[in-house]
Amino acid sequence: MPKLSEVKPNVFQSLDVRTKGVMLLSMLCLALLFDDPRFNFIVFLIAAGIAFLAQLSWTKVRQTLFPILPLFLLIVIFAGFSSGNLHFQQERSQTVLLEVWPAFHLNITYGGLYRGITYLLRMLILILSSMTFLQTTSLEKLTQLLQKLKVPAQFSFMIMTAIRFIPVLNRKRILILEAQKARGAHIPEKGAFVPIRTFLPLVVPLFAGSIQMANTLSMAMMSRGFGYTRYQTHTDEFRFRIRDGVVIGLEIILIVLGLYLRIVLKLGKL
């Protein structure tokens, strides 16, 4: 059963999904707006502050970040080498920090280093804000959001049905695996180069069984009136409260401020 996360009760959870969605989007905008790491650092602090308020679990953050550390290193190294007036508008940025291979103009510049840090901060901001969003939003709320966004009711029904069938299909997967092993199939779990064919005995019955299952499901759905009208009786309604208004207001102010700094004052460039 996929759980987006254990939803903890706190201030954030009581916010409307839409509010939190806008929050996620505004953090994304702010993160991509500036190239200068100092500005990104401020955005990062805001994201971290929100995560802190939402009681984001530190262990979870660590678990998420740990596997992608090598990627972070790669990002900084690559960005470090970017140089020349093509990449940077400010002279300070083009100053060479370290000459690696002068014959090829392969140098690490201050600008490159800054850019690397910016990339890092952007990733961190996005990771933190999406984790905050996920950890404070339950799955039902998310599908209700889909309905609110005028997504056809059928669409959210499809998503719920998909969730319902995950454990069913997973059981099927295990049964098929056992049945094929009993026929002497080598379905390896380790190794470097494994022929893709060895997985067909598992995949083909799984796909075939799924199609048969879908056929019955569609018959059962029609037999229960699915498609009689385009709508279904709704249950839960959204509540948009004052605190949502306040938070959305803050988000808008932040974005406007960001845009002002970047476009009007032309700050935050490298």
Binding site: M160, T161, V168, T216, L217, M219, F226, Y228
Partner: peptide
């Protein structure tokens, strides 16, 4: 009312109540 052979692939709800309500909801 139609009931099919495979119990698994006729259930659409995550909870019992939700599943039984599926039919009536379609009729608004």
């Amino acid at each position: 009312g139609m009931v099919f052979q495979d119990p698994e692939s006729q259930i659409v709800g995550l909870t019992v109540e939700e599943d039984v309500a599926f039919g009536p909801r379609n009729f608004l």
